[in-house]
């Protein structure tokens, strides 16, 4: 097992290099560079000033030199300095946005599990019942409704009409002067809408997955055996059927690892949440190459690790799968 993990880890290195090379070429192929994006159509900027800025960023070098330099820095885990004018390191810029994105994604994932698993189980057990049909409609509505539209409607209802919840942002302006309870409520109230909106769209996938797994398992002989033994239906469903139906969730969890740090730019913009989605979007729009590469490499790395974790987790949980 350990040898298997080690081999997989070693294999990620060439994969990462390949991914980074393709990413590097693609982002440099996009029209306009960081200097052009900041100075295009500005009469105060001369050609000479532009050249100087290009040299300042090292963009006057041939592209393969730029790539090798970047790769050299990456080898020491140095993501380099962002091209943006605050002069921050890429790792700092990404680091300061991780907590909020991670928190929202973890919370919404928990909410999805809490709601989707019972819906899936119940829909499977009572297949074609009214509950099954209505929940199907509801979760697919959630899947189909555009995030920004739902978010705006909820903001108008709870923020403007009822005035129960704040509309956007992470904390109120008076946050620092609040007491502890006030601070906790302030943060919670700011998170309610974003977490609900981001979870609502994810219900469909998980609940349908759970439902079909359950249906699969319920047909198995050992469920019939359990029933024949005279076990109460509750035990049959939760102890024997559901636990087995949850197995494929390990894979889903593994695949969700990169998603935990991925933010949606539409969702973050609408709620004015300074998360990774906005950061990444802005870095693309301003052609901040080191930051784009940093975000892509982290994403690729998490995807590869997530896959590995899923495979390992599955092997541990299911004795039928052997890695040797």
């Amino acid at each position: 097992m350990l040898r298997y993990i080690a081999r997989r880890l070693v294999l990620t290195v060439p994969l990462l290099i390949g991914i980074s090379l393709i990413s590097f070429l693609v982002i440099h192929a996009a029209p306009g560079g960081p200097v052009e994006m900041a100075t295009d159509l500005n009469p105060k900027v001369t050609a000479e000033a532009r050249e100087r800025l290009r040299a300042y960023y090292g963009l006057d070098q041939p592209i393969h030199v730029q790539y090798v330099r970047w790769l050299g820095r990456m080898a020491t885990l140095d993501f380099g300095q962002s091209f943006s004018r605050d002069g921050k390191q890429v790792s700092e810029k990404i680091g300061e946005r991780i907590p909020v994105t991670l928190a929202i994604n973890v919370l919404s994932m928990l909410l999805i599990f809490l709601v989707a698993i019972p819906i899936g189980v119940y829909s499977a057990v009572r297949k074609d019942s009214w509950f099954d049909r209505i929940s199907t409609v509801v979760v697919f509505t959630g899947f189909a409704v555009p995030t920004f539209w739902l978010a705006l409607l909820l903001m108008i209802l709870f923020g403007v009409k009822l005035r129960w919840l704040p509309i956007s942002g992470l904390v109120s302006l008076e946050y620092d002067s609040l007491g502890l309870a006030g601070k906790i409520w302030d943060r919670t109230s700011h998170l309610l809408l974003p977490v609900f909106v981001s979870a609502f769209g994810g219900l469909a996938g998980f609940s349908r997955y759970m439902r079909s797994n359950m249906l699969e398992v319920i047909r198995q002989d050992y469920i019939a055996t359990a029933r024949a033994k005279g076990l109460p239906e509750r035990k049959v469903v939760f102890r024997h059927a559901m636990r087995n139906a949850l197995l494929p969730f390990i894979t889903i969890l593994g695949l969700s690892v990169p998603g935990l740090l991925g933010g949606s730019v539409i969702f973050e913009s609408i709620f004015a949440i300074p998360g990774l989605g906005q950061l990444f979007y802005q870095s693309v729009m301003s052609r901040d190459y080191p930051l784009i590469m940093g975000a892509l490499v982290i994403g690729a790395f998490l995807t590869l690790i997530g896959n590995l974790l899923a495979d390992v987790g599955y092997a541990l949980a299911d004795p039928r799968i052997r890695t040797e």
């Binding site: 920004f148 705006l152 903001m155 108008i156 923020g159 403007v160 005035r163 704040p166 509309i167 956007s168 942002g169 302006l173 973050e268 913009s269 609408i270 709620f271 004015a272 300074p274 906005q278």
Partner: peptide, 20 residues
């Protein structure tokens, strides 16, 4: 003077109406 970053113009308008 406090400047809040609100990237979406529709959200900004709702913030204005709600006193944010």
């Amino acid at each position: 003077v406090i400047t809040r970053v609100i990237p979406d113009p529709a959200t900004m308008f709702l913030e204005l109406k709600s006193g944010g």
